[in-house]
């Protein structure tokens, strides 16, 4: 494991931790009917878009696990881990299939937000861990997508910028319109 990988992993772990605190303690003040932005999910998407499916998936699993265990979570653990793992994988694949521009990145965030919250909701239905009905679930999921889209322009460029800065000078990719 070279120093660049270590530095990047540390940065991503720190970003997820910060995102968790923001999501549970700061942003609920802005929430609309209790639905706020999923900062952790957007960070995972940003990492997936910048670093590919492998990094996205591993980070997604770790971040989801943290979200499952950190207070005030009380759902069956493993649900966010599964959802965010898929999110990280999909975000990483988007990056490989086409170089994502601004519109592409936003579309990826919207798709991943929808996917992540839906998978979380569906596992809840399967495990009988929640009593919400499908229309309620859909309402929450869609409001969540709007929030995450609003958050993405702040999170995606900063995560991508730091990850590029952590790369040795010679190995940086040629600046493309991203």
């Amino acid at each position: 494991m070279n120093p660049t990988t270590v530095a990047r992993s540390l940065f991503l772990a720190l970003a997820v931790g910060l995102a968790l605190v923001l999501q549970t303690s700061v942003l609920p003040h802005l929430a609309w009917h209790g639905v706020g932005p999923d900062v952790v999910l957007v960070v995972v998407v940003a990492a997936g878009l910048a670093r590919g499916a492998h990094v996205g998936m591993v980070l997604g699993f770790g971040a989801g696990l943290l979200l499952d265990l950190a207070p005030p979570a009380d759902h069956v653990a493993g649900r966010w881990a599964l959802a965010l793992m898929l999110v990280g994988y999909v975000a990483g694949r988007v990056r490989q299939d086409a170089p994502a521009g601004v519109a592409g990145s936003l579309a990826a965030v919207a798709a991943c937000s929808f996917l992540g919250t839906s998978v979380f909701a569906l596992t809840g239905l399967v495990l009988q861990d929640q009593a919400a009905t499908v229309p309620e679930l859909l309402q929450v999921v869609l409001v969540g997508v709007v929030w995450d889209l609003a958050l993405a322009p702040f999170v995606l460029p900063s995560v991508a910028w730091v990850l590029t800065r952590l790369q040795p000078e010679g190995l940086r990719p040629a600046p493309v319109a991203r």
Partner: peptide, 23 residues
């Protein structure tokens, strides 16, 4: 940057066992 199949399976199994353990 694409994950190996073994990693995907391992993480999926980890999620499943977490749900079983906690459930």
């Amino acid at each position: 940057g694409r994950p190996s199949r073994a990693l995907v399976v391992a993480l999926l199994l980890a999620c499943a066992s977490l749900m079983v353990l906690d459930g």
